[in-house]
Amino acid sequence: MYVRPFGYTRPASPLEACEHLRRDDGAKVLAGGQSLLPLVNLGLSTPSLLVDIQSLGDLHGLHLEGEQLVIGASTTHRMLERDAQVRRVAPLLAASVREVGNLRVRNRGTIGGSVAHADPAAELPMCLIVLEARYLVDNGARVRSVPAADFATGFLTTRLAPDELLTRIEVPAAGPDWGWGFQEVARRAGDFALVAAAAIARCEGTLVADLRIGLAGVAPRPVRCPTLEAAARGRSPEALPELAPLVDPDIAPSDDSFTPAHYRAHLARVLAIRAAQDAARRSLDVRAA
């Protein structure tokens, strides 16, 4: 609770925020503070200046823009959880966000913060690669768009330059005949997932026509499972379990003090299939309705 002192500033524009980040090597963006401030309190991060982006109004809130859901980086987990549009056009996000931390963490923690922090077990960055979202990144002079799948480069590291802000997240709305599935195993309620899996699927007739699967907690960054996705096409949902070993080429779990890598790999196989089956069944339900 006694931390190394740092400065604090509330910039009036993204440009001003980026100038602070450029001028001061030790400056860090502060969003909801639910990942950064625990690190600061533990002495694991010792910034010289926190640049609080909560004052940047354009980064708040979410809305539909044509066929996509646009989420400002400063939108909180709680807003995503409670928004009726999100439940309709991105039900996978609405369901998975409920598993993030506890109520207090979701009340302050932001979607942009979760993506920029890039915890390999975080739910939303994984779901966003399944939904093939894009991230807009701004350095005050130039805005670029990065596909979610290319954003995280490893454990807590991303393609963000030190002077760049993540400003918005663009999520293509899933078509009406897509179903979703989300599965997670954590040691205790509110903990980060040991492994989480997300899937979306579209069926034609009784068979899977399209399937996308993502996993978190089994590699230094969230992964898709292209081998399994390809093999699932043309199969019935009941025939998916035999494909479980096909997640193996796309994961690289490691041991930690509580969880051996082989257990994470086991969870990955089981949860990927369960999420895929849930997604396929929901797609069939929509078609039946």
């Binding site: 503070g33 639910q34 401030l37 609080d52 509110g190």
Partner: peptide, 27 residues
Amino acid sequence: CGEGVCGACAVLIDGQAVNSCLVLAAQ
């Protein structure tokens, strides 16, 4: 705990429960 885990420091800000250990007074 100072890490957002225990909830002993919870207060409401404008009606929403938050971890006061993970909010700066300046914010």
